Amino acid sequence: MVEEFVDGTELSVQAVARDGAAEILTLCEKLTTTEHDGPLYSFREAGHVAYPGAEVDARVRGFVDACVAAVGYANGPFHVDLIRGADGALDLLEMGFRLSGMGITELIERTTGRDWGDDALGAHLGERRAPVTAAPRPYTGQATLRHADELAAAESLPSTGGLRVEIQYLRPPTLPADWSAGVPESLRADVTRHAAALARVVIAAPDPTRVTRALETCLTTSAPVPV
């Protein structure tokens, strides 16, 4: 509820703590949608565009350091979700002490060449890793596609001019006809949001703006935006 009503750019930081010090692997800008499925109103994180940790500005880095210090987190993986307002102010949404889902670990590896799971284990074993460098690979983003027109838009994107498009087709689970019997209506949105995806589109390009515009094209029913 908070995430939906705080104005600004949604961000998430993926990182590893070692001896209480945070190393940021990636910063993701989120793409969100609001959807209606019958009587249900659903706010959804639909996509992420990843930047290497070396490109994170001092303000965000200091915010993450403050979060780690506040909870006394010594070693292991974590993520911080926040919103950056028009004035640059940062609002905390949540901090989680785990690897993220929705293919984020794969997105980190594509963007930085680092394995978040290996880094997390290494932190507990006292291993040190080389720092993440700026833009060692093309910027990469991804979006979850729930509707046929979104999938069609992704399939029509050309892999030209440095833009690389990959579609990972998903198979939604087969649910029994009476699966929702006895389930509160408020909880059915979770199935709609997480179990009804048709595919995930992964897009890479030398310019992160092109990645964002291409993903936005897939998530809208309006005319495609030139990418």
Rank of each mutant, 00 (worst) to 15 (best):
V2I: 11
E3M: 10
E3G: 14
E4F: 03
V6K: 01
D7V: 06
L11G: 02
Q14K: 04
A15C: 04
V16M: 08
G20W: 08
E23V: 00
E23G: 07
T26S: 01
C28Q: 04
C28G: 04
C28W: 05
T34R: 15
G38K: 07
V49Y: 15
V49F: 14
A50W: 02
E55F: 09
D57M: 06
A58I: 11
R59D: 09
R59K: 15
G62L: 07
V68S: 03
A69L: 09
A70L: 11
Y73N: 13
G76T: 05
G76E: 04
L82M: 15
L82G: 03
I83A: 13
R84T: 06
R84K: 12
L90K: 11
L90A: 13
L92W: 07
L93N: 14
F97W: 10
L99C: 07
G103C: 06
L107F: 09
G113Y: 01
D119V: 00
A120Y: 10
G122W: 02
L125P: 03
L125T: 04
R128Q: 04
R129G: 03
A130E: 06
A134N: 00
R137P: 00
Q142P: 01
Q142V: 00
A143R: 01
T144L: 07
T144Y: 05
T144E: 06
A148T: 03
E150W: 04
A154S: 07
A154P: 10
P158G: 03
L163F: 09
I167P: 00
Q168L: 12
Q168C: 12
Y169G: 13
P173K: 13
T174C: 15
L175G: 10
G182H: 13
G182V: 14
G182L: 14
G182C: 09
P184N: 15
S186H: 14
L187G: 15
L187K: 14
A189F: 08
A189S: 14
A189N: 12
V191F: 12
A196V: 06
V201I: 15
I203K: 07
A205L: 02
P206L: 05
A214F: 04
L219P: 01
T221P: 02
S222Y: 11
V225P: 09
V227P: 00
